[in-house]
């Protein structure tokens, strides 16, 4: 019985890892190097255009967004640079160069109000942000697999009911709490957007409405509702207003 358990697990693992191969993308690779060359020669706008062409082909990578952010930054498009860095953060959360560049780009735009959050809330957000969504997915999957294996071992080893409940319960609790974090992270990221150019947020979705507050380029906001051509947004300090849809882009 033990042999069967391990043989079946081994077989399943082989099937999974055979399917995890990353597809090669020769066209995208050559465009990427071409864009890098343009950047090296100081033609930042051209470099950004070529990076954008790669994105239009449907392929992306953390480094591509990072380089695109650099291209935008050097071309003076700070809002788009912050947007690209944010997108890169979703693919490589702990890259030191990326963190430095994003902070520098943000320091070049007007400071937006800091969200009011408690110490524990901030630590929780840091914990969520430490891994990318894909990394969280794999982590939660591995925890789930560990829970399943713990359960099967308890059956195979004829553990006592108490012992089985303890270990299966422990693994399950860890798994369910991290699955909850993954769901929270996915939901939190869903409606985030970046202001691409300085704009005003109005009380109502019309041009002549009263201005509620101003938004500098690069400000991260949450998109709440879309009524073309207006979008209702919420700033990090909780203030809400309507802005024109072409002044922001979802991350």
């Amino acid at each position: 019985m033990r042999t069967m358990l391990w043989r079946s697990f081994l077989g399943m693992s082989v099937v999974i890892f055979l399917n995890l191969g990353v597809s090669a993308a020769p066209d995208e690779m050559s465009l990427f190097f071409k864009a890098n060359e343009a950047y090296r020669q100081g033609d930042y706008a051209k470099a950004a255009r070529i990076y954008e062409r790669i994105l239009q082909s449907g392929k992306t990578s953390g480094n591509l967004y990072y380089n695109l952010g650099n291209g935008y930054f050097k071309s003076g498009r700070l809002g788009s640079a912050v947007l690209s860095y944010e997108r890169a953060r979703r693919l490589m959360a702990r890259d030191a160069d990326l963190i430095a560049n994003e902070q520098f780009a943000r320091s070049q735009v007007e400071a937006s109000p800091e969200p009011k959050a408690s110490f524990f809330k901030m630590r929780f957000f840091d914990y969520c942000a430490y891994l990318t969504t894909d990394e969280w997915t794999i982590f939660v999957f591995v925890l789930g697999l560990a829970t399943v294996i713990a359960h099967l071992l308890s059956l195979q080893q004829n553990w006592s009911v108490r012992q089985s409940r303890f270990w299966a319960g422990l693994f399950f609790l860890i798994w369910i709490s991290h699955a909850g974090i993954l769901v929270f992270k996915v939901n939190q990221q869903k409606d985030q957007a970046i202001i691409l150019q300085k704009t005003d947020a109005f009380f109502e979705p019309r041009i002549k409405a009263t201005i509620h507050f101003s938004l500098s380029e690069g400000t991260k906001v949450k998109s709440l509702k879309v009524e073309p051509p207006w979008v209702k947004i919420e700033r990090s300090d909780g203030k809400m207003g309507w802005v024109q849809a072409d002044t922001l882009e979802k991350i």
Partner: peptide
């Protein structure tokens, strides 16, 4: 800002999480 990355790193589909 820090200079660009030399290699593209692992590719994935735009807007498609694992």
């Amino acid at each position: 800002i820090v200079f660009i990355k030399e290699k593209p790193g692992p590719w994935k589909k735009v807007g498609m999480d694992f």
